[in-house]
Amino acid sequence: MQHKLFLPIALALGLAVAGSAIAAPPAGRLLASQCAQCHGTNGNGPGFDELAGKSARELRDELLEMKYRGRVEGIMDRQAHGYNDAQIQLIADYLSAQPGGGGGD
């Protein structure tokens, strides 16, 4: 038990090392992971429309359209209501940078 008393000092040093070695997670990664139950990990399938690699602008515009058009046609329209506009932008930016076939269509 006794050696644990020294931990705080070691931790302070460790933090400095870790802080420089590990980059913060990319913005939007956690938010975009919440699309993966229906679009596949990183938006890369299997699932509904492939999202990975689609342009950020297209993704954002489609999501905003589904969110604001008033009528709800399907489950995706509902899901689009689950995010604020800033979150939608972060998600679109993250997914557009993922490798995948979404850019193909």
């Binding site: 870790a18 997670p25 990664r29 956690l30 992971s33 919440q34 229906c38 489950i75 979150q87």
Partner: peptide, 22 residues
Amino acid sequence: ADAIVRALAGEAPDDNVTTNSA
């Protein structure tokens, strides 16, 4: 998972967090 990975790197958890169910 995100919170654990951040904690291991000495970072605070993200608070821009959503969940969903279908």
